[in-house]
């Protein structure tokens, strides 16, 4: 177990390093000259050469790459391209917690509801409830979040005026974003829970438990759910991924000052340092989520030893 832990944690380092290299390359070969953007109307060849030197852009390629990685490892991402007065690190520090909190709420909601619905559908297969849940799952996976968002805003914010249209800060303002963000993960978790529980229910030991007279709820809790938990846990990890990227849409719709919104604004303004940092931050988040999922997998399943 210790060995596996060390191996799995060790695996993340080359992964992150590789991601940093790719992100640096993407920024390096991106169209457009940063110096020209920064200088704007003051562009002269001398000023450009001077600035290039100040920014370290005249150094050899490998040195620039190494410098980028060393700085990134120390959470120093430089300054914003468009607005050099702002440090990217501070932007991340202000906005990332908002995105993570939003995603966490959505995943929590999706997990609780999704597991309940999925187990319910599996316990009463081919019933009306099951059919309805199945239709809901297909809708949840097919209808894009900005459409769900539009419908909910139209009904709850504009027609009935129950909740604010957009904004961030009050608990009411978070209700619609969390629901919109939770929709796709909810469908996904429901589908996997249903499949997983149904599969476990066909196992011999479940029949044995039933035939020895154990009541249905006890069978479900003690025998079925424990064995069906593994794929569900994996899915919850993946749902976190969905929720984090779903924020790209939700933060734009609801005008939430999170990391995804900053990234979208940066893309529209071609603010490369912020784009690179955002991708790097998200990559790190994903690597960590995958790590946690893998570790929980090994922890939950005594049969699997790596």
């Amino acid at each position: 177990m210790i060995c596996f832990l060390a191996y799995r944690v060790g695996l993340t380092l080359p992964l992150l390093l590789g991601a940093a290299v790719v992100i640096f390359l993407a920024g390096h070969y991106a169209p457009g000259d940063p110096v020209q953007v920064l200088l704007g109307d003051h562009y002269t060849p001398e000023a450009a050469a001077h600035m290039r030197h100040d920014l370290g852009l005249d150094r050899p390629f490998v040195v620039q790459l190494a410098a980028y990685i060393v700085h990134a490892a120390a959470f120093d991402f430089g300054v914003s391209y468009v607005n050099p007065a702002r440090r990217v690190r501070d932007i991340v520090r202000q906005t990332l917690p908002i995105s993570v909190r939003l995603a966490a709420c959505a995943v929590l909601l999706a997990t609780i509801l999704g597991v309940t619905l999925g187990v319910g559908a599996a316990v009463y297969p081919r019933s009306v409830v099951d059919r309805l849940i199945q239709i809901g799952v297909i809708a949840g996976l097919s209808v894009p979040s900005f459409v769900t968002g539009a419908i909910l805003v139209l009904l709850f914010a504009l027609r009935w005026r129950l909740l604010p249209v957009a904004g961030w800060g009050s608990p009411q303002a978070a209700v619609l974003p969390v629901i919109v963000l939770a929709a796709a993960p909810l469908a996904y978790i429901t589908r996997i829970s249903r499949a997983s529980v149904r599969q476990v229910m066909t196992e011999d030991y479940v029949r044995t438990a039933r035939s020895k007279g154990l009541r249905a709820p006890a069978v479900l809790l003690r025998h079925v759910l424990r064995n069906a938990a593994l794929p569900i846990v994996t899915t919850v990890g993946m749902a976190f991924g969905y929720a984090i990227t779903g924020a790209f849409v939700v933060e734009v719709i609801f005008n939430i000052p999170g990391m995804a919104r900053v990234a979208v604004d940066a893309i529209l303004q071609r603010d490369y340092t912020i784009i690179q940092t955002a991708v790097l931050v998200y990559t790190t988040l994903f690597v960590v989520i995958n790590l946690v999922v893998d570790l929980s997998y090994a922890f939950l399943n005594p049969r699997v030893r790596y």
Partner: peptide
């Protein structure tokens, strides 16, 4: 494995965001 671990939207954002 590496590429699947990433949410698809993020990869797409990186490509179209940086290269237009």
């Amino acid at each position: 494995d590496l590429l699947i671990a990433f949410p698809s939207l993020l990869l797409a954002v990186l490509v179209t965001g940086i290269f237009g």
